[in-house]
Simulated assay, not measured.
Amino acid sequence: MTSFVSHTTVDCHHAYELSEWWKALLGYVDVEDDPNEPGHEECTIVDPGTGHSILFLEVPDAELPAKRIHFDLRPREGSRDEEVERVRALGAREVADHRGEWGPGTGWVVFEDPEGNQFCILRSPAEIDAGSAG
């Protein structure tokens, strides 16, 4: 079992404004049927050629952390919870567990690699397709 990078996440103070700036720089576009709008706390832009996406996520901290960019990973097969156990076995350090905070089947788990770089394990595409919330 392995994971793939679902998207790259940028922690920021103004998600909409920053996503618009990067969209102009990179030639990315809004997600079809889910346009970014002023005031949105989460804004995703997508490369129309490769499908790579960047999520701009507003964080409440007055000072943004030094490590503001991280990967969000999805299991290629199996479930998020199985991948969480595999990642632990590889020696990643768990930072925060947000599973179930917004109802059954929701959330993610935040880890650090051996050098302290954070990444999140999200639900698998199969779990999303199965219709579980979040």
Rank of each mutant, 00 (worst) to 15 (best):
M1P: 09
M1Q: 09
S3W: 07
V5S: 06
S6N: 15
T8D: 03
T8H: 00
V10L: 14
C12R: 10
C12K: 08
C12G: 04
H14K: 12
A15N: 02
A15M: 04
Y16Q: 08
Y16A: 01
L18W: 05
L18K: 13
E20H: 07
W21T: 14
W21M: 11
W21E: 12
K23E: 03
K23C: 02
A24L: 10
L25Q: 12
L25R: 06
L26Q: 01
G27Y: 05
G27A: 09
V29E: 14
E32Y: 02
E32S: 12
E32Q: 13
D33A: 14
P38W: 06
G39Y: 05
E42T: 15
C43Y: 03
V46Q: 13
P48D: 11
T50D: 03
G51D: 05
H52D: 11
S53L: 03
L55C: 08
F56D: 03
F56S: 00
E58T: 13
V59L: 09
E63L: 12
L64D: 01
L64F: 04
P65F: 09
K67M: 08
R68S: 13
I69V: 15
I69Q: 11
H70Q: 04
H70C: 11
D72N: 11
D72I: 01
L73C: 14
R74S: 13
R74W: 06
R74I: 00
R76G: 02
R76Y: 01
R76K: 14
R76E: 12
E77F: 04
E77T: 15
G78R: 05
G78M: 06
S79M: 02
S79L: 08
S79N: 05
R80P: 00
D81A: 14
D81L: 15
D81I: 12
E83M: 15
E83P: 01
V84N: 14
E85A: 15
E85S: 13
R88G: 00
A89E: 14
A89T: 10
G91I: 04
G91Q: 07
A92E: 11
A92D: 06
R93I: 01
E94C: 05
E94F: 10
D97P: 00
D97Y: 10
H98G: 02
H98S: 03
H98I: 04
R99T: 11
G100Y: 08
E101R: 14
E101I: 08
W102S: 13
G105A: 06
G105L: 03
T106W: 02
G107S: 07
W108T: 07
W108M: 04
F111P: 09
F111R: 00
P114F: 07
E115D: 08
E115Q: 10
E115P: 02
N117M: 06
N117Q: 07
Q118I: 02
F119K: 10
C120M: 03
C120H: 01
L122H: 05
S124E: 07
S124N: 01
A126C: 01
E127W: 08
D129I: 03
A130V: 04
G131V: 08
G131F: 02
G131H: 09
S132A: 12
G134C: 07
